[in-house]
Design a protein around this nucleic acid. Structure first.
Lengths: 210, 210
DNA sequence: TGTACATCAGTGAACGCGCGTTCACTGATGTAC
DNA sequence: TGTACATCAGTGAACGCGCGTTCACTGATGTAC
């Protein structure tokens, strides 16, 4: 009867998923302090309210948890970027603003990615580098659709895309750890810099295509 | 007599300094693997060939060693930049090439700085951020001496300087962990991007100075 | 130059602690009939 | 619907290990006379 009156009763699967979320979220919180490499299985379990040995019901090892965190972060980024690409003729400043708005919801996740991008194990670093390469490649495709740029060789498009992506990522790193009142300035600076790059592209003389 | 024939006999001070160097270099090597936060005092001592307790003859704590490493790295960078500023009218490509040449000698040091820039304790992060701000400010001064830019407001100069510094730093991060054969391509890409930024600056309309 | 004493980098035993991992277990949830 | 059994998330004791730090020490180097 209680079962019918309310949705309070969780299935075993829902319970397990909730604990798994607690492990993931707890790890993100802890990793924000000292970095993932400095965390212990026992404190992660503690942060999720379970006994150390129960950790193994969810992940085979700390490494597997690390990989999961990268995958989650990356998935989040992909979703954000898909949203972004839906309005391809948006103004440059809108695009940048939208990007930071996405980041603002998930500081923990993005600061994890920023941290582990250079700081993590080689497995994590490679996974993140690979994803950033995909993002750059997508931007190359987007840029190649712009009338002025459609005659550029791929190398030059990649040069520009890489510059834009790394500029934005660099400011995301600042953004996630900045106090709220400094954030608008960071966004505006990013917009200014991307605009400067866009001006540079406008007077760039692309190499002849081979 | 042996004393007069050779320089093999070290003073106590020289011996101590040699052990200290061994601690610093050993830590850089170990930190390249897993990051500074994941290292233990005992393995650092082991890497320097001393017993754990002897560590305290050189540093009060791991934190103090970390701070020392940042200071060393930063000192190295300052020396490199001072060299760079001696030839202020060098071509842009020469300047970038020179920067990477400096980095090439000390991969361990620079990869430590790159890692701890976002990955370390907040003390290390702040120390590195502070130094990078100084570097940006010096570039602002250099830029303000260029005829075309001498009427720009400081904000715009900072925008450009920040963009250039972060682009170069970003590629230094790639450079230090890249295999030797990929390095020239990274340097060329950096030159291309800085050139693109320079073009952007050339057609930038600075805001009126207040 | 020789001697007696001070300095101090490095030693090694010892400590209590948190670690990752094993194992047999419990008891609530889920399933088959 | 009720019962008997299976599943499995979480428990708790136990292990051996490397950790940071204390302490009293050693013996080579340095210094004062």
């Amino acid at each position: 009867m209680l079962n019918e009156m309310s949705e309070q009763v969780e299935t075993r699967i829902e319970r397990k998923e909730r604990t798994r979320r607690a492990l993931v979220e707890g790890t993100l919180t802890l990793a924000a302090e000292r970095g993932f490499a400095a965390l212990s299985l026992r404190e992660i379990a503690r942060s999720a309210g379970i006994v150390p040995t129960a950790f193994y019901r969810h992940f085979e090892s700390l490494d597997e948890l690390g990989t999961t965190l990268v995958d989650e972060g990356v998935r989040q980024m992909r979703l954000a970027l898909r949203e972004l690409r839906r309005t391809p003729d948006a103004r440059l400043s809108e695009t940048v603003r939208f990007t930071f708005a996405q980041v603002a919801g998930r500081e923990d996740l993005y600061s994890f990615l920023i941290r582990e991008r250079h700081g993590g194990s080689s497995a994590l670093r490679e996974a993140i580098a690979f994803e950033m390469q995909l993002i750059t490649r997508e931007l190359v495709v987007d840029l190649s659709r712009i009338p002025l740029l459609d005659t550029w060789p791929t190398d030059d498009l990649e040069l520009a895309a890489d510059l834009i992506v790394s500029t934005v990522v660099d400011h995301i790193a600042e953004f996630v750890s900045a106090p709220l009142r400094e954030r608008p300035a960071i966004v505006e600076r990013t917009i200014g810099q991307v605009r400067m790059v866009a001006l540079g592209m406008a007077s760039w003389h692309p190499r002849a295509t081979h």
